[in-house]
Every structure is written in structure tokens, then in C-alpha cells.
């Protein structure tokens, strides 16, 4: 499980999130990483279950869903190619905070959180660069949530 597939390493290096990062870090991130495919309607992640994977979306579309007992499941965001899914692997308690479901056939690269964390901790330069890319993702999601909260369509 710990060997590196050259193909996967290249695919990670090509993904917009990793493009241009230190090749040594990309190599480290590729350890144990694997491509996965999800058919339409299948769950990519389930709320509350352990989150040990950093997902790079290569093709397809993933819906983030929130369910409440008293109402139908609601999709609050979709994530497409070039985007990333999940930060629960980075922060304890490492559990998924929502359901993620493939809307159509979806190809992703699944990176191992338990390999990424020590690598980032051991190499502050990698860690900083990684966060520099990750924070905008969070900031954008946060901003979009805020925008949604003020209700863009309230006229």
C-alpha cells in the first residue's frame, strides 16, 4: 500500500491544487494514494464516519448534502474537477461533517491523511505552501456560505 504509482504521482502533480508544489512533497503525498471511481448516486463519504482521506476531484461532480430528520436531503454545494473535498483529515476528530455523493460518474484521487499530516509537520515550508493553497479553499467556502446565508436571491 505504501508504494508509489508513477501514474498517480503525475496525476496529483497535474491537479490544480498540487500543481507547482515541491516535487518532493508531491512524491510524499502520492505515497499510498489511489485513484477511485464513484458511480452516479453512490456515497463518497458519509457524515460522522472517520475521515482519513483528502480527495482531489479529477472528473465528475460531487454533491455535499445535509440531511435533517424532518425534511428532504438538501444539496448545499457541488464540487467539480480541479476542486478538493474534505479537510476533516487535517483536524481532529477526523470525521466527515457531511454526506458527499457522486452526482454522476466521478473520478478522484484519494490521498492518505495519515501520510500527509506528518509530512506537513516535518517540513514547515511544505506545510506553509500547502496551507497557502488550502486557506483560500476554506475562505471561499466560508464566503459562499456567508453569501448563501444572506440569501443572494432575497429580492
Amino acid at each position: 500500500m505504501s508504494e508509489i504509482s508513477e501514474e498517480v504521482r503525475e496525476a496529483i502533480g497535474r491537479h490544480p491544487f498540487f500543481a507547482g508544489l515541491d516535487p518532493a512533497f508531491v512524491r510524499e503525498a502520492a505515497v499510498g494514494a489511489e485513484p477511485r471511481t464513484f458511480g452516479p448516486g453512490t456515497l463518497v463519504a458519509r457524515e460522522g464516519t472517520p475521515a482519513e482521506t483528502f480527495v482531489l476531484v479529477v472528473a465528475g461532480k460531487i454533491a455535499l448534502e445535509v440531511g435533517a430528520p424532518d425534511r428532504p436531503t438538501l444539496t448545499v454545494q457541488t464540487i467539480g474537477p480541479g476542486e478538493v473535498l474534505g479537510w476533516s483529515w487535517l483536524l481532529p476528530p477526523h470525521r466527515w461533517r457531511f454526506d458527499a455523493r457522486a452526482v454522476k460518474e466521478t473520478h478522484v484521487l484519494a490521498l492518505r491523511g495519515d501520510r500527509l499530516r506528518p509530512a506537513l509537520a516535518a517540513h514547515p515550508a511544505w506545510g506553509f505552501e500547502f496551507l497557502r493553497r488550502f486557506v483560500p479553499v476554506l475562505a471561499e467556502r466560508l464566503e459562499n456560505t456567508r453569501v448563501q446565508l444572506v440569501d443572494l436571491h432575497a429580492r
Binding site: K61, A63, P72, T75, V76, T78, G80, V147, L152, H153
Partner: peptide, 23 residues
């Protein structure tokens, strides 16, 4: 086309319009 929120019967994008601009 994107919507702020949708049920399972929606196969399109979900997210505020600004999320679609990068594409």
C-alpha cells in the same frame, strides 16, 4: 446553471453563482 440548494432530483450544480465563475 446553479442553484443555492437542491434535492436529490437535481443533477446540476449547487452553490451560489460566484462558485461557477472560475469555470
Amino acid at each position: 446553471v446553479t442553484v443555492d440548494a437542491a434535492g436529490r432530483d437535481w443533477y446540476g450544480d449547487v452553490g451560489v453563482v460566484t462558485t461557477r465563475l472560475p469555470d
